[in-house]
Design a protein around this nucleic acid. Structure first.
Lengths: 147, 147
DNA sequence: CCAAATCCCTACTTATCCCATAGGAATAAT
DNA sequence: ATTATTCCTATGGGATAAGTAGGGATTTGG
C-alpha cells in the first residue's frame, strides 16, 4: 500500500502553491524546487502533468511560473493523488469466470477493495489544500512529529 | 496507492483457508494453489511468511499442510495485508529539520498520512476473514461484479 | 531585435524491487 | 523405504519508478 514518490512530490508542490502563491504572481518551478527541496527537473515533469490534469495553470516566459488552477479550498488531496497515481485502490481485473472456490474468494476480495475505496475516498476527497494549510497554521509549527 | 501482488495472494490464500479448512484437516499448498489459481512456488513462500507472522500453522510430512492459526473471526484483513506489505500508509522519514516553507509543507503531509491511516485502519482492522465469508455467502455467488 | 527567463517536450539511464522459478534439504506418515 | 509435504536459499527476468539531460517554444524587457 504505497504511494509513489511522484504523488508525494506533487502534493508537496500543490501545498506550496496553496500557501505561497495566493497573492497572484506565478511561481517558477525552480523556486518551488528550491523551497521544498524537490529535484528540479523531476518537479518540472510533475507540474506538467498537473497542468494537463487541470490542477495548475502555467505561464511561460520571463515572469512565468505556476499557479493553482482553482482556489486551494476547491482542490482536494484526492484529486492530486489520483492525478499522479490513478485509482487509489487496487482494481480487480477479472479475466474469465473462475472455478467455484476461486470465484467465491474473488468476491471476498471485491468486498475488501470496495470498503477500502470508501474509506480512503472518505478521507482524501473531503480534504482540501486549504484545510491542510489552515490546520497546520493554527496548530503552530512545533507540533506532533509522531508519525 | 498499490497493494503488492503478494499481499493479494496472501489474502486469497487466507480466505481460502477460512472457508475451506474449518473442518480440522491441514491443507497442502499445492491444493490451495490449484483451487485458487495461484503460482505454486510463490505461494509456498507466502505461506512461509504467514507462518512466521503467526497467521497460519503448518504441519510437515505426508498429511501436512496449512491451517489458520486462529479462527477466521479472530484474524483481520489488516493483519494479513500488513504481514506482507508492512505499514499500509506512507511513512514520512523526516531526515533533518527543514527550512521554513518545506517544514510547514511536511506538517501538512503528516496530517494527510495520519488521516489516511485512520481511514484505512478503520476498514481493514475491523474486517475479519469470517466477515468476508459470511457476507459473500449470504449474498450468493452471482452478485455485483461492478468493481 | 536580442537576451534572459521560463515553460515544454522527449528520450535516456539507472536502480530497485517485485514476481516468480528452481533445486534440494528436513520432516513425517504409511 | 517411499511418498508427500513443508522449509530454505539462491537466482533471474522484467517491469516500473525515479531521476537526468538537452534542447525547443514562448514571453518579457531593454
Amino acid at each position: 500500500m504505497k504511494l509513489s514518490q511522484k504523488a508525494e512530490y506533487a502534493l508537496r508542490a500543490m501545498i506550496h502553491l496553496a500557501r505561497e502563491s495566493a497573492g497572484g504572481g506565478a511561481r517558477p518551478a525552480t523556486q518551488i524546487a528550491k523551497d521544498e527541496e524537490l529535484p528540479e527537473k523531476f518537479l518540472e515533469q510533475i507540474l506538467s502533468d498537473l497542468r494537463k490534469q487541470g490542477l495548475v495553470k502555467s505561464r511561460r516566459g520571463a515572469v512565468g511560473g505556476y499557479n493553482l488552477a482553482r482556489a486551494g479550498g476547491k482542490i482536494t488531496v484526492g484529486e492530486v493523488l489520483r492525478a499522479m497515481d490513478g485509482p487509489l485502490v487496487p482494481r480487480l481485473e477479472v479475466s474469465a469466470a473462475r472455478s467455484g472456490s476461486a470465484n467465491l474468494t474473488l468476491q471476498c476480495l471485491r468486498l475488501v477493495w470496495r470498503k477500502l475505496a470508501v474509506g480512503i475516498s472518505g478521507v482524501v476527497d473531503n480534504l482540501t489544500l486549504q484545510d491542510l494549510c489552515d490546520t497546520v497554521e493554527e496548530q503552530g509549527a512545533a507540533l506532533d512529529y509522531s508519525i
